[in-house]
Design a protein around this nucleic acid. Structure first.
Length: 727
DNA sequence: GTAGGAGTCTTCTAGACAGCATGTC
DNA sequence: CTAGAAGACTCCTAC
C-alpha cells in the first residue's frame, strides 16, 4: 500500500513522506485497513521493528485531527517513554503537543491537559486515573505498547485494569509481540486482530552446537568450536553483535573475554573514539571492568550499571563505536538496539527456586533484535547449545509457538491494591458493583467464570475493612476512609500502609534511622538486597546490637522470616551508611553491590519514606516527630548528615561538594554567599561553573575579572587533557 | 610449620513500575 | 526442579 492511498489527512501523509517513506509494510497496511482508522479497536501482534510505532502514530494523529481529544501511549519502561516521546515530537509540526510522564517527572498534572499525546508508563497512568484529573475524560484513544506484559506476574494486573477501565470509553490499540492466544485478547477487547511474522529485514535463525551452525532451513555452516567465533566473525565483517546471557557475572566475563579478541580488529580512530568514551565514565569498581572491556570495543549491559552508563552504551553501540554488547535480558526489553547478529548463550535462568527455561516469548524478543533496518539485508539470531540438545532448542525456540498469555489479576499483591483503588477512587459502591466490574476483565473473559476471583475479592474486602482502609455501612455500601484513599493515591500496597501504621506508636516513642529503614525494607513495595550466607551472622549481630532501635522483634533462626529479616537489616544498613556520608565506592565494596542496585534501593526508599510521612500525618502526628521524619527524608534523598541539609539545597551541590564546603568552613549558604570566589575555588570539587551557579542563585553579581580568570583556567584545563590525550 | 597446588565443597544467580517538588517531558 | 562458574575450604606435598 502506498502512503498516498491512506485514507487520512494530507498533513499526516506529508510528515510520513518527509521521513522518506513512500510505501507501507504489508502488516502496516493490513492494520490500517482493519477499521482502526474508523475507531475500531485493534490488536496488532507483529514482530518488533516491523513498524508498530508508525501504525500507532498514524492512528493517534488521525484520531486527534478528526476528533480532537487526547491519545495516551502506554509503555512498560521509563526509558521507552523517553524514546517514544522523542519520536512523537515530530508531529508537533502539525500543532500536536506531546508530553511524557513517568514517576521521574510530575504528578496530579492538570497541566498534562494541555497536551494531545501523552506518553506514560502503565503504572503512572494508573496512578493518574486514581487522581482523576479532568482531562481523563478527553482520552479518546489508548495505545498499549508491549501489551503481552498483561501476562507478567508482578506488573500484568495494572495493565489489565487500565484496559478494563478504558474499554468502551476510549478506542484501544494494543500492540503485542507474537503470543499464543492473541485471538483471546482480541475477543476480550472487542478488537480486530492483525497478526504477522513479516519483517522489513529478513531474520535467519539457527542453533550453534560444537562448531556447527544449523540454520532453520536445514543449511549447515562450519565454524571453530567456540561460539565466540560467531562474534568475531561478525565484527570482522564490519558488523556488530549482541550476546545474551543469564547472569550479570556472565555478562561481565564474556565482555572481558571477547574484548581481548575484538580489540585486535579495531582501527586507530576507533580505538581513540573508545578512549574518549571511557574518559566520560565515572569511576567505581563496576565501571572499572566496563572500561577495560570498552578498550576492546566491547561492553556489558545489565541493571547493575547506572542509567547514564546504560544509555551511553546503547548510543555508542547504535553509532558503531561499540562492536559487541554482552547483556542480561535488560537489553531485550529496552530501547531499540538492533544488531546484525544476536547470540543467545543461555536459554535457562535461575528463578529463585531452581532453573527454568526462559519463555519462548522472551527468547524471540532477543532474536528480534537481529537485523538493522537501514544497514542489513538480513539479520542473524543464533542460539548456542552448550549442554542442551540442539534439536530440542530448534524445536522449542525456533519452530515453536510462544506461550499463551494468562491474566495475572489474581496475583494477591496486585489484586488487593486494585480492589482498594476501585473502592476508594473509582466509585465502586458495594460488592455487587465490584463483581460487575471484575466481570469486564481479561481474567473473566479468559476463565469464563469469576467464582475464584470473587472469593479472593471478598477476602480482600474483609482485610480492607478490618484494617480501616474502607468501611461498610448498614446497607452494605462501601465507604472510603481517609487512610484507604491516601494509600491508594500514594500508590503503595495496602500491606505496606498497614505495616507503617502499626509501627507508628513505637516510631513515635523512638524515632531513629535504623528502625525506620528496617521498617521500610520490610514492606512488600521495597526491593531488599539479599544477605548472603556468610553475611548472615554479621547482620544478626548488627540486629542485636541495634535491637532497641527496631520496631519489630528479631525472628528466631527457625522462623521462615529469618533470612528475609536479615536481608532487611542489610538494606537498612546500606541506607544508614548512605545518610552517614559513606562514599559510594565503599558502599559498593562493603556490600558487594553495583551502582544500579544502590540507585534502585535509594529510589524506592525515597518514595516509601514520603509515603510513610504522608500516612503519619493522618494519625494525630506529633510536630517534632513529623519534623524528624522530614529531615530524615531529605537526608535520604541527598545522602548527607543533618548539618549539610542546608547546603545540599544549593544548585549543583550534592553530598560530596557539600561536605567539602562544610569542612572548609563554609557551613551555611550565608557563609558561602559572603565568601571570596578565590577561597571557594580552593575547595575540592568546586570549579568556576559551580561558583557561577551559586552566585546566580544568591542573586549576586560575580566580579567580571574573576569570571575571566576562571574561564581561562577552565580552558587551560581542557587543553591540558587534550594534550595528554594526543600524546 | 607453612606455602602453595590440586581437588572438592559451597555459594550464588534478571529486571525495575509507583509520590512529590521543580518547572513544564 | 534441569547449570555452571567462582570462591572457599580441605588436604596433601615439598621444603
Amino acid at each position: 500500500m502506498k502512503v498516498e492511498e491512506l485514507p487520512v489527512d494530507e498533513r499526516i501523509k506529508r510528515v510520513i513522506r518527509e521521513r522518506g517513506i513512500k510505501e507501507l509494510y504489508p502488516p502496516q497496511a493490513e492494520a490500517l485497513k482493519s477499521g482502526v482508522l474508523e475507531g475500531k479497536n485493534l490488536v496488532l501482534a507483529i514482530p518488533t521493528a516491523s513498524g508498530k510505532t508508525l501504525v500507532s502514530e498514524i492512528v493517534m494523529v488521525n484520531k486527534l485531527l478528526r476528533e480532537g481529544g487526547k491519545a495516551v501511549y502506554l509503555v512498560p519502561l521509563k526509558a521507552l517513554a523517553e524514546e517514544k516521546y522523542r519520536e512523537f515530537k515530530e508531529w508537533e509540526s502539525l500543532g500536536i503537543r506531546v508530553a511524557a510522564t513517568t514517576g521521574d517527572y510530575d504528578s496530579t498534572d492538570e497541566w498534562l491537559g494541555r497536551y494531545d499525546i501523552i506518553v506514560a508508563t502503565a503504572e503512572k497512568f494508573d496512578s493518574l486515573l486514581r487522581h482523576s484529573p479532568k482531562w481523563v475524560r478527553d482520552v479518546k484513544l489508548v495505545v498499549a505498547d508491549e501489551v503481552h506484559l498483561i501476562g507478567s506476574y508482578d506488573r500484568g494486573a495494572t495493565l489489565e485494569m487500565i484496559l478494563s477501565h478504558m474499554l468502551g470509553k476510549a478506542q484501544i490499540l494494543a500492540l503485542s509481540a507474537t503470543v499464543g492466544n492473541a485471538e483471546e485478547l482480541a475477543e476480550w477487547l472487542d478488537a480486530a486482530l492483525v497478526m504477522s511474522d513479516w519483517r522489513p529485514v529478513e531474520l535467519r535463525k539457527g542453533v550453534f552446537h560444537l562448531g556447527q551452525l544449523f540454520w532453520e532451513d536445514g543449511k549447515i555452516d562450519r565454524y571453530p568450536e567456540n561460539w565466540a567465533f560467531l562474534v568475531i566473525d561478525a565484527v570482522k565483517r564490519g558488523k556488530g553483535a549482541l550476546v545474551f546471557v543469564n547472569t550479570r557475572r556472565s555478562a561481565e566475563k564474556e565482555a572481558l573475554s571477547l574484548s581481548s579478541k575484538v580489540s585486535k580488529l579495531l582501527t586507530k580512530p576507533e580505538a581513540r573514539q573508545l578512549e574518549e568514551l571511557i574518559s566520560s565514565i565515572e569511576d567505581n569498581p563496576t565501571t572499572e571492568k566496563l572500561k577495560r572491556a570498552l578498550k576492546g570495543g566491547v561492553a556489558f549491559h545489565h541493571a547493575g550499571l547506572s542509567r547514564a552508563e546504560r544509555t551511553l552504551i546503547e548510543d555508542a553501540f547504535r553509532a558503531g563505536a561499540i562492536k559487541v554488547i554482552a547483556a542480561t535480558p535488560t537489553l531485550a526489553a529496552g530501547v531499540n538496539t538492533p544488531a546484525f547478529r544476536v547470540i543467545i548463550r543461555d536459554t535457562k535462568r535461575y528463578a529463585g527456586f531452581g532453573w527454568t527455561d526462559i519463555p519462548v516469548l522472551e527468547i524471540q524478543q532477543m532474536m528480534g533484535r537481529a537485523g538493522r533496518p537501514k544497514y542489513d539485508r538480513v539479520g542473524e539470531a543464533i542460539i548456542v547449545a552448550r549442554t542442551e540438545d540442539p534439536k530440542k532448542l530448534m524445536e522449542r525456540y525456533i519452530h515453536g509457538k510462544p506461550e499463551k498469555l494468562f491474566s495475572m489479576l489474581a496475583n494477591e499483591q496486585a489484586f488487593r491494591s486494585q480492589v482498594l483503588a476501585l473502592i476508594t477512587n473509582f466509585g465502586i459502591g458495594n460488592f455487587r458493583e465490584l463483581v460487575d466490574f471484575l466481570g469486564k476483565t481479561f481474567y473473566a473473559h479468559q476463565k469464563g467464570d469469576i467464582a475464584a476471583l470473587e472469593y479472593k475479592a471478598r477476602n480482600v474486602v474483609y482485610f480492607l475493612i478490618e484494617n480501616e482502609f474502607i468501611d461498610m455501612d448498614t446497607s452494605d455500601r462501601f465507604m472510603a476512609l481517609p487512610f484507604g484513599k491516601r494509600t491508594s493515591q500514594l500508590y503503595i500496597d495496602p500491606v505496606t500502609a498497614k505495616k507503617f501504621r502499626d509501627a507508628f506508636p513505637q516510631l513515635e516513642e523512638n524515632p531513629n534511622p535504623f528502625g525506620i529503614f528496617q521498617l521500610i525494607a520490610s514492606t512488600p513495595d521495597m526491593a531488599t538486597l539479599t544477605a548472603r550466607k556468610r553475611e548472615l551472622e554479621d547482620y544478626l549481630d548488627l540486629a542485636y546490637e541495634f535491637e532497641e532501635r527496631l520496631y519489630t522483634n528479631i525472628p528466631y533462626y527457625e522462623d521462615s522470616r529469618f533470612q528475609g529479616f536479615l536481608s532487611q537489616v542489610k538494606t537498612a544498613k546500606v541506607l544508614l551508611d548512605w545518610i552517614n556520608e559513606v562514599p559510594e565506592a565503599r558502599i559498593y565494596e562493603t556490600y558487594n553491590i553495583d551502582p544500579g542496585d544502590l540507585y534502585r534501593i535509594l529510589e524506592l526508599a525515597d518514595w516509601l519514606m514520603y509515603a510513610l510521612i504522608e500516612l503519619y500525618k493522618l494519625f494525630e502526628p506529633k510536630e517534632e516527630v513529623l519534623q524528624y521524619l522530614r529531615d530524615l527524608h531529605l537526608r535520604l534523598r541527598h545522602g548527607v548528615r543533618e548539618e549539610l541539609l542546608e547546603l545540599v539545597k544549593l544548585p549543583n551541590i550534592g553530598r560530596k561538594r557539600a561536605r567539602a564546603l562544610y569542612n572548609a568552613g563554609f557551613t551555611t549558604p550565608d557563609a558561602i554567599m559572603r565568601a571570596k570566589v578565590r577561597d571557594l575555588l580552593e575547595v575540592e570539587g568546586i570549579g568556576i561553573k559551580v561558583v557561577e551557579g551559586l552566585f546566580k542563585h544568591f542573586g549576586v553579581e560575580m566580579p567580571g575579572k574573576v569570571k575571566e580568570a576562571g574561564k581561562k583556567a577552565e580552558k587551560a584545563r581542557k587543553r591540558g587533557t587534550l594534550d595528554e590525550f594526543l600524546k
